[in-house]
Design a protein around this nucleic acid. Sequence first.
DNA 1: ATAAAACGGAATTTGTTCTTCCGTTTCACC
DNA 2: GGTGAAACGGAAGAACAAATTCCGTTTTAT
Lengths: 220, 220
Amino acid sequence: MPVTPQPSPEPTRRPRKDAERNRQRLLDAAGELFVERGFAVSLEEIAARAGLGVGTVYRHIDDRAGLLSELLAPMLEEVLTVTRQALDRDDPGPAFFWLLRELAERVALNQAMRDVLLAEIPPEPMVTRLRAEFAPLGTEALRRAQAAGAVRDDLGPTDLPLLLAAVGSIEVRFGRVAPGTWERFLTLLLDGLTPSRTTTSKLAVVPLTDEQLGELSSPE
Amino acid sequence: MPVTPQPSPEPTRRPRKDAERNRQRLLDAAGELFVERGFAVSLEEIAARAGLGVGTVYRHIDDRAGLLSELLAPMLEEVLTVTRQALDRDDPGPAFFWLLRELAERVALNQAMRDVLLAEIPPEPMVTRLRAEFAPLGTEALRRAQAAGAVRDDLGPTDLPLLLAAVGSIEVRFGRVAPGTWERFLTLLLDGLTPSRTTTSKLAVVPLTDEQLGELSSPE
DNA sequence: ATAAAACGGAATTTGTTCTTCCGTTTCACC
DNA sequence: GGTGAAACGGAAGAACAAATTCCGTTTTAT
């Protein structure tokens, strides 16, 4: 009997070089577009950005949903990572505000993240898992900050998605015209509108100009 | 020459009774649906709510856009009215916060208003007019509140739409599950998250429960 | 009772995106 | 540099959704 060089139990041949390269381009393009424009981008647009035809896209994925869940996992994992980092710190007050900023920034700069937060997305097990894992961590971070007297006592753990959703929505509306506005808004939110706060934060971002406000009317 | 009973220059006959009634039903239904669900509701749904066929709807309006602009005017007028009321008061600080609440409430409870604020709407001259007329009034209300020391000095007039958009977005996301959450959020926004504020406001609305948060995953 | 006006809703049009299909091109190996 | 399998491109088809039109039927006013 002739010896087969590799009697590998799985007859999985390694993919052709071009196929591998194109698969990577596809994932890169989809990732970029999801961040920029959210999960609603069409496969045609993704294919175009990747420099491929739509047919080729379907050679690499099962369907739209497959692509989505493939890219979702790493994005959501990051949320848990920063949250754990906040819990590792031993200055609960500042750690909590740092966490809020980290999360707010991700939500503000990533349309896909907003889609998840705002549920503009078909139900995904990955998302459910994130919620389940995040909840106790976020709750604990808040609890410690309150114990340290850094955060008002009547803030609840379920307010966190509220705050993040608000910050995210600001960037949806105003980001195109004045990127970074989310940060101004976040500061207002943390500080409140009334003067002579005990916190030190100055508004780091300037208000929109009237011209910018006017630009908001036009569609594209 | 025979005398015509009414030689009215415009040969406009008065409409039939049923036509007049149906026109009113149509406008009512459209108004309700716009408030509940925004301008994106289909004409079919409007017709159904009015108890009419779609064909009949087209007998009363030119097209979708015509219906929209017909209903837009009174809604926007109201914004100017409350703003002027705020300016009529002689307690600039409270007046400003009162105005914010009035506007926030309208935005929070009216999806059509949010569509206008968030520009989810084809460009309408009516909207442009509103912006132009509101801007100086809002600016003045803010300026006086700042002069009275009630509002931080670095808040700008263009922050007002920002705050309203944020409040509105909260109700979009959380309103179905926990109506009224917008008010809790508004208080946070006015107050800030840190404790021992000089303002008196307590959070009047309870936080979402975990169950409510869970419900947000499901589509309908 | 009759004719004009109005009505209902099926059918048509328009627009968009997902997905499949198949003729053409590229790659890996000889 | 030839050959077959694998991969590719993009046109065509399927699915969906909402806007608008059309025309046979019903209602109103006289």
